[in-house]
Simulated scan of single mutants.
Amino acid sequence: MATPAGPVHEALAELELVDHHCHGVVAGPLDRAGFEALLTEGDRWPGVSPFDTPAGVAVRRHCAPVLDLERHAPADDYLARRAELGPPEVNRRFLAAARTGVFCVDTGFTPHRLTTPGELAAAGGGVAHEIVRLETVAEAVAARGVEAGGYADAFRAAALDAVRRPGVIGVKSVAAYRTGFELDPARPSDAEVTRAARRWLARGGRLDEPVLVRHLLWTAVDLGLPLQLHTGFGDSDIRLHQVDPSRLTDWLHLTAGTIPVLLLHCWPYQRQAAYLAAVFEQVYLDMGLTLHHVGPVRARAVLEEALEITPFRKLLYSSDAYGVAEFYALGALAFRRGLGELLQDRVDADELGLPDALRLARWAAADNARRVYRLPDGH
């Protein structure tokens, strides 16, 4: 997975990444249907293979050599070699190729049997921390049984217990999937929460009651840890026009001076996210998930738009890899290559000094995340 030459590229290739938002990988074997399902955020299309997407092509181009195959190996050959090596070796190779030193793992989405944070870190030769998904906490509270009038206190207590577990460094909300961001930004009253809890508990299912989603976001503020928010690109459950992060502007005004807010993924709203990072002290962003889906060829364009006005202390790296370890390697490659190209070109044009470029690369690759999550140097 060689990157182009140049001092910025070389420095980025040597840096261990802090992946501030990721997931486990499937621990067992995957057949073709299972692997292809994890290649895409979309539904399956009869007669159309997810290998015939930008992400699928990038896997065959950049991941095949990691499995000792020729570049652009046919999909059947790729999957046969993957099965021959077996999941532990495949995962080890791709996680090693990513050169990630710290994994911040969202443990709240597990439709598959995934590696634990510890297993992921051991395979990648790094250390792991946990990100608590607050909707999962709320749904567990409901599943245990709670009266509507006691929901607020029960959720708050469960969230506090969750974030006090060893290794937890942040929380996450998937409000984007549940309600979108067209929410009243104000903290809901106790009476509003009780009425909303009564409606939700009566019908059951996942947490998609707007008042309770607002309550969850304000509870995150009270917890005091960095809050990750999915924005932009996701699967078909998303209503993309409702997850533009600029819709959070009023809430960000109300929460100024409280906790760091980390906008995940962002595409196609990377410019809106950049604006928020430029005008709100507490806002940060990444282009995770996007980078391995656009691939190394387009990573620079996406990052360049994000960095038009984003303060350099506000860009973090994440892979948002889920299920297949290839996305760890592809996300890291796309980030290193895309950021390296745009910084190196600015150095070559004398718009940026080389020492500054190297410093900015270190910040985005690892140091910004260490600062936001209060991680020690080295881990």
Rank of each mutant, 00 (worst) to 15 (best):
A121T: 07
H112W: 14
R60M: 02
V66A: 10
C104H: 10
G86P: 09
A80G: 01
P117V: 10
A58P: 00
R61W: 08
E36F: 07
F103I: 11
V102L: 15
D68Q: 04
A75R: 08
L114A: 01
F109K: 09
P50W: 09
E36L: 11
L30Y: 09
A27N: 06
P54N: 01
R61A: 08
P87M: 02
R32N: 08
L85N: 07
P117C: 08
T110Y: 09
V105T: 14
V105D: 07
P74Q: 07
F35C: 03
F94Y: 12
L39G: 00
T40Q: 13
D76M: 05
E41D: 10
G34K: 10
D31F: 10
F94N: 05
E70L: 09
G118Q: 14
C104E: 01
R92S: 07
V59K: 00
G108E: 02
V66N: 07
G118M: 09
L67Q: 04
P50D: 08
R44H: 06
C104V: 14
L69D: 00
P111F: 13
T107W: 05
D43E: 12
D68P: 09
R60S: 02
E36V: 07
T107E: 06
G56P: 01
G56N: 04
R93Y: 11
R71Q: 07
V57T: 09
P111S: 12
R81Y: 02
P87G: 04
T53N: 03
V59A: 02
R60Y: 01
L85V: 11
T53W: 03
R71C: 00
A33P: 04
S49C: 05
V57W: 13
H72I: 01
T53F: 05
W45K: 13
V48T: 08
H72S: 12
R82Q: 14
C63Y: 00
L95E: 09
V105H: 05
A98H: 04
L38R: 07
A58F: 04
C104M: 15
P117Y: 02
V90F: 01
G42I: 05
A75T: 08
H62R: 04
T115M: 10
A55E: 07
